[in-house]
Design a protein around this nucleic acid. Structure first.
Lengths: 198, 198
DNA sequence: TAGATTGGAGAACAATAGGAGAACGGATGG
DNA sequence: CCATCCGTTCTCCTATTGTTCTCCAATCTA
């Protein structure tokens, strides 16, 4: 069964913001978060998600509400791999990693696998997992996921030149910094932590 | 069985404040702590937690109350900091970090904070947290916590020269490998993963 | 243009989660 | 034996929550 636009939006919201709610949200809370003023309206959408098997109601029939589909471990989605100069290589079905709280921020996060050596001098190696906070603005010096010309994604240190141009600095002395017009570069997230398995 | 909001909140409270109570708390004490004025109300919630197997009543049937369910994952102990050339600088009271399963090994592990830059070319920076598997033997090429002359601890890559001598390789081109007689070097653990906060 | 679909507002309803408070009975200590 | 303390059980109450309905606007579609 196919979802309507709004149903998809609500489902996406639940998936990416499940972590924000300490306890499973009530309809009222979701309404507020989604900008609705009627529980009845929400209920129709949620019901559609339940019918589609994407969400399930809480066991205790009331007082509390629904739960994310793969409820239990509210992990961070591992969305794919990022290699300098290419779009993010998405995994078809994101895997959810149980990243501990002290390695994530308050806002929605996701995990990417780093491909390549462009940040090697910042201690970010090929194959490392990076936790990225979803954000469209960043401060100078932060390491960001940037989308260039709406197609290439890359992980670089940000340098805002304050003249409508932005320079992305690799941390690899064999690579050159690249400067772009500000409108060519979109910030997609900011590095908050790093995980590496040996 | 899933918990209601209040049950979850009470359970969270018990988990995070278990240490405050020298003796297991009475219902009255819990009521005061939780802002309740009726033991009866509390009892309903506690009973739900008992049914869910999250808490169990004290053996001594009366006078005392419930006990934290011990099976909760405690996490990995953060034992202190390791700086090349010094003993491990222990924290007086180890903090337990909830490290996810995919970042630890089957055997006992602990966490150290890395001080210094001696492994910087292996992507291990000053301030990083390293998860170490407790082990007294290691293979060539593994990164190990080694104790030298029973006093200096250091994190280095291991090279067994197979002639009763061992070389510890820093990953920093401005530092020199050090070679020791095999009996001077004790392996204390092997690096299994790395965590870094930005 | 007419009908169907989608998305939302708001009222009304039934169920219960959550709490208050009283009472009971076992245990304990003097 | 009495005074307490403490877990337990009971009844009663209320605000909140999920649910169902009806009504309406905007958009899509034939």
């Amino acid at each position: 069964m196919k979802l309507t636009r709004r149903q998809q939006a609500i489902y996406d919201y639940l998936r990416s913001n499940a972590r924000q709610f300490v306890y499973p949200p009530t309809y009222d809370e979701l309404c507020r978060a989604l900008g609705l003023s009627s529980r009845g309206s929400l209920h129709k959408h949620i019901q559609a998600l339940i019918d589609a098997g994407l969400v399930e109601p809480m066991a205790g029939r009331q007082g509390i509400r629904l739960v994310e589909w793969e409820s239990q471990e509210r992990g961070i989605p591992h969305l794919g791999a990022i290699a300098a100069g290419r779009p993010i290589e998405a995994i078809s079905q994101p895997e959810f990693l149980p990243v501990p709280d002290f390695l994530i921020s308050q806002r929605p996060c996701y995990v990417l696998t780093v491909k390549g050596e462009s940040m090697i001098e910042a201690g970010i190696m090929d194959g490392d997992l990076v936790v990225i906070e979803e954000r469209s603005v960043a401060r100078n010096g932060e390491i960001v996921v940037a989308l260039i010309n709406h197609e290439e994604a890359t992980l670089k240190r940000l340098q805002d030149n304050h003249d409508s141009s932005i320079t992305l600095l690799p941390e690899n002395s064999s690579m050159e910094p690249m400067t772009y017009a500000a409108e060519q570069v979109q910030i997609q997230g900011v590095l908050v932590s790093l995980l590496r398995r040996y």
